[in-house]
Design a protein around this nucleic acid. Structure first.
Length: 445
DNA sequence: TCTGGGGTCCTAGGACCC
DNA sequence: TCTGGGGTCCTAGGACCC
């Protein structure tokens, strides 16, 4: 099996499309006060910038980096092209996310390979990925199981290939820290350390019953096996979606229930839209709230039958929100639907008994134009200068660098935010929810 | 100036049923 | 004059992943 991991994916795509950023520190993520880093380029990592770090901390570590909002549509498009290359290698490909996948080579008859042969296959794949993606690099791990392939792909980043020979798996793992095992996070590592377990070798020695007492039945059983590299999990190409959700952290905590209701309604509609697009429907609606102290609560309600009707999702979400304690204001609100079915049931159960009495949608205040678009990194076009991207905006002005992936960097120009000549580029296949927005923006309206 | 958004899987208690 | 037992569904929360 191969595990393929695109290197610093979001940042690499930005450097590909914005030549002036090549070789420079780039940070992609939330750019607001409460934003976090999604991906830092390797140049930015040298300053200690890491994924999941608050953007504020990243800015203090690396003030001269370019801070960009993610362009998810572009990443998805690139991802699809890369995944297609993998499927050309083997029909059995399991994407784990937009930038990662497992490939089962045996599904295309590639068995009994030598280490050199596997290495050659991995390098060919890397070449194909580089060509189809406009120069992106990947790191590849190979082994006899998902566990080994996944861990191996991490050992020689970026742009590396690591093949673990069959039969050497347990000794390969033994000296490593337990946290290399996917599923062992801070909480599990902490518990294990109380039994003196730090490395996989320690874990291999630990009694299974003792392990289960420490971390629970399911986790203990699977960890006990993974520690000795006993992993027979298959590569599954079509995993079914189990839930669909939308959530938003506000720039400042929101206490106004009328505003929260309006936001909840809109989130319910976005969730329902996504369900419909995926031809799914669900029975359980969940509302999530996060308090100022970061404690998180969920309330859920299960319907008699599945729905993808925005009005039904909105009404249930409203009720759950009403039942939620919002204390002195909440920093996050989310709406989700689970217990999914891949069909829509007949009106028998889905019938909306409130259909004659539709809920009245609360209108959100309009946002000022300079908050509706023009995020750093955003693609724009100008009739005189051609295509470019937003470097920054504020105080009614927006600064644009004119360049594309295959043009030399052009001029940097500043425009009024109201300049009608400057237009945003809408990417094909973009979701309505690719547009970043926050409660703060809403409140500013 | 702490701490995103999209997910998956597991646990535990209570209701309910046979 | 406490005490069945097993299975399923629902709800809430938590750990973890990218």
């Amino acid at each position: 099996m191969l595990h393929v991991d695109l290197d610093a994916f979001f940042a690499a795509v930005e450097q590909r499309d914005k030549p002036s950023l090549r070789g420079k520190p780039v940070v992609v993520g939330g750019i607001g006060l409460r934003g976090v880093v999604s991906t830092a380029s390797y140049e930015a990592r040298r300053y200690g910038v890491r994924s999941a770090m608050s953007t504020a901390e990243a800015r203090s570590r690396c003030p001269h980096a370019a801070y960009l909002s993610p362009r998810f549509e572009v990443y998805r498009r690139t991802s699809r092209a890369v995944m297609a290359e993998m499927r050309a290698l083997s029909p059995l490909v399991e994407p784990l996310s937009v930038d990662e996948a497992f490939i089962d080579l045996t599904a295309s008859g590639l068995t009994g390979l030598t280490v050199d042969e596997v290495e050659a296959i991995a390098n060919d794949l890397k070449d194909a990925i580089r060509k189809v993606s406009g120069g992106l690099t990947a790191s590849v791990g190979a082994g006899t199981s998902k566990l080994i392939a996944k861990i191996a792909s991490d050992l020689d980043k970026p742009d590396g290939v690591v093949v673990v020979p069959a039969g050497t798996e347990a000794e390969f793992l033994a000296p490593m820290e337990v946290t290399v095992i996917p599923g062992v996070g801070p909480a599990t590592a902490q518990r294990l350390s109380m039994s003196g377990v730090r490395t996989v070798a320690d874990l291999q020695q630990l009694d299974e019953d003792e392990l289960i007492r420490q971390v629970g039945s399911a986790h203990g059983t699977s960890l006990h096996r993974l520690a000795i590299a006993a992993d027979d999990r298959p590569v599954v190409s079509d995993r079914e979606t189990k839930s669909v959700s939308v959530e938003d952290t506000f720039e400042t905590d929101i206490i106004d229930r009328t505003l929260l209701t309006a936001i909840s309604d809109r989130m319910a509609h976005r969730v329902a839209e996504r369900l419909q697009r995926a031809q799914l429907s669900g029975r359980t609606v969940t509302v999530k709230t996060r308090m100022h102290d970061f404690t998180t609560h969920t309330r859920s309600s299960t319907l008699a039958g599945p729905t993808d009707d925005p009005r039904v999702v909105a009404r249930v979400a409203r009720r759950l929100l009403e039942e939620s304690d919002i204390g002195g204001g909440i920093r996050l609100l989310g709406v989700g639907v689970s217990s999914l079915a891949d069909w829509i049931q007949d009106d028998l159960f889905t019938e909306d008994e409130h259909a004659d009495n539709p809920i009245e949608l609360v209108e959100l205040p309009a946002r000022p134009r300079d908050l509706v678009g023009f995020h750093p990194g955003q693609d724009v076009v100008h009739p005189d200068y051609g295509p470019g991207w937003v470097w920054g905006s504020g105080r009614g002005r927006v600064t644009v660098r004119f360049e594309t992936a295959d043009t030399p960097p052009g001029p940097v120009r500043t425009f009024s935010i109201d300049d009608p000549a400057l237009t945003k580029v809408q990417h094909v296949g973009a979701d309505a929810d690719d547009e970043p927005e926050t409660g703060q923006n809403v409140e500013n309206g």
